[in-house]
Write a protein that binds this DNA or RNA. Sequence first.
DNA 1: ATCCCGAGGG
DNA 2: CCCTCTGGAT
Length: 217
Amino acid sequence: MLSGKKTVEALDRMELMYPDAKGELDHETPFQYLIAVIMSAQATDVSVNKVTPTLFASYPTAHDLAKAPLEDVMEKIKTIGLYKNKAKNIIKTSQMLVEQYDGEIPQTIKELVKLPGVGIKTANVVAGDMFNVPAIAVDTHVERVSKRLRICKQSVSVTEVEEVLMKKIPRERWVQAHHTIILFGRYHCTARAPKCEGCPLLDMCIEGQRNLIKKEK
DNA sequence: ATCCCGAGGG
DNA sequence: CCCTCTGGAT
């Protein structure tokens, strides 16, 4: 298992590769960001950014989306996949925001996860990016990178990955670390064909060294 | 553990 | 063709 010190070293090297890492979902308000993050489940941010201009042109606020016809919302977000559940969730979430928060969005993770379509990952992302609440959202990229680098064991759950990362990374770096690891996973340590050749982290990555040996054959 | 679910990449 | 994408609810 990679120690806390080595984990920070790995993070430092990733930050050199992606010094300005931040969320890539287009939005103009915290409400729109919440909706975009909900829709980004099992979808690329590129595909989400493709539907949000149309969606938010018709329904820019929680008050608007709360009254939107389900069929119309489904039609507008169809291309992102899982669209039936997502359409229901973002309308219902908007209705709850209107009823409980006057159309604004709550600032705590505890309150955010009560909204339909909002799990711990989405809540962490929104609270971290919009309100600077210290959190590490573990998505598919963060999980894959953490396990490949042996920051945590292969078998652990998403919750445990989050716990290990919070222990090994200083609190003030949590929010930024999330974005850095995401970009490293999205563009470099990819799921299918990771760019192990010449990777700055190769010397601390057993998985990467194995991959290169495999390539030799 | 299973379902949802279209688009893009290799 | 098969795999993957900033998961969540049941």
